[in-house]
Design a protein around this nucleic acid. Structure first.
Lengths: 194, 194
DNA sequence: GTAGTTGATGTCTGTGACTGACGTCAGTCA
DNA sequence: TGACTGACGTCAGTCACAGACATCAACTAC
């Protein structure tokens, strides 16, 4: 028999989401979470750098999906086409079965501004990573930054729409729609930018 | 003679920036800041909701500039034109004399990820406010969100450039350039978005 | 198979961010 | 003149997090 139950991080993550969803984020201490799965506070902080992070563990896998999309884009693709590929690839990270889980998690985040702050930070660092990948493909500095930030924005908006009650399109479809709307928006500048 | 020196918040802000710049953010306690201007930690937290906030006080004035720009846009302006106005208006918040101060402040933020997180959060809430203002003008939901987020992104990129050593264009000029680049980027989609 | 090593955990202790309750006192205003 | 207010101080408490060190099953080398 093993000395410890395996998968401590996973158990902590699951317990944390449940406790946050019932009691609320601030009303749940790190000790609460740890003890609910038979561990100590110290162990909690060995697995997660801070209390908020327990809800954001595994985000690097999403970033990887984005990068895969960037890599599989044809060499002559424009920055925005590359971003479109990345978005489609990232969407595969959120199959429809995952919607209920994503909804619950988001409802927790939406109720606490410290968590929203962390979420935005993750999205921003995704944009930074994306921009690096674009630059590595030879896209110039400013275009890479703008395309990457736009990609992150589109992803954020699409994701929000994806988890809305009643929505049944796939994340990939929504993402493509939002990106198209962005193109439309910027191409219908009737007046000159001063 | 007054009982207390006036302008406690301002004195705290100034002292905080100086201490953060010399010792670093984490190496400076709220007590350090407060006592350096003859106040107590408790008073510090009466003026600022948390330690990071001392660097972001007054941001609502910037938001106001954005909103002024939105309001002064002609009724038939497209969402992106409105955003262009907002950007130009916001730029007046950062006259060239302010560059040295902004550089110092940014160097502090760039050295601490908790501060970067807060900065992104502020930019995100600016986008939300902008989107509300656009919707209030009749812009539809998705277009408003996209235009507002794009505006915030452009502002962020332009500001970063404005701060760069050797840069001497005004923030308004840089902002207009970045926005134009965004338009260029999205209008040169040779391939169809899948 | 025994000794040494490793890795995930527990224990103990400390620091600092933040909060609530309450006291203080100069200035204001009735 | 006396009640009231607003900005501050004092005190005590909670909790997020971190360093140092101990523990002990499992694995490894010999």
């Amino acid at each position: 028999m093993a000395r410890w139950e395996p998968g401590a991080a996973g158990r902590l993550q699951k317990a944390a989401l449940e406790l946050f969803a019932t009691r609320g984020f601030e009303q749940t201490t790190a000790t609460d979470i740890a003890e609910s799965v038979g561990l100590t506070e110290r162990t909690f902080f060995r697995h997660f750098s801070d209390k908020r992070e327990v809800l954001f563990h595994g985000q690097h896998l999403l970033v990887e999906e984005f990068l895969t999309g960037v890599r599989t884009a044809p060499p002559d693709a424009s920055p925005l086409e590359i971003v479109a590929r990345a978005l489609r690839s990232a969407a595969s990270f959120f199959p429809d079965e995952r919607r209920p889980y994503s909804r619950l998690r988001q409802s927790v985040i939406d109720q606490n501004s410290a968590l929203q702050e962390r979420e935005r930070h993750k999205l921003a660092s995704l944009a930074t990573t994306l921009a690096d990948a674009l630059r590595a493909r030879g896209v110039d500095e400013l275009a890479a930054t703008l395309a990457a930030e736009s990609g992150a924005t589109v992803f954020g908006i699409a994701f929000t729409q994806w988890i809305r009650e009643g929505e049944d399109r796939s994340l990939a479809d929504i993402g493509a729609d939002v990106l198209r709307e962005l193109v439309t928006l910027t191409t219908t500048v009737s007046r000159k930018i001063p």
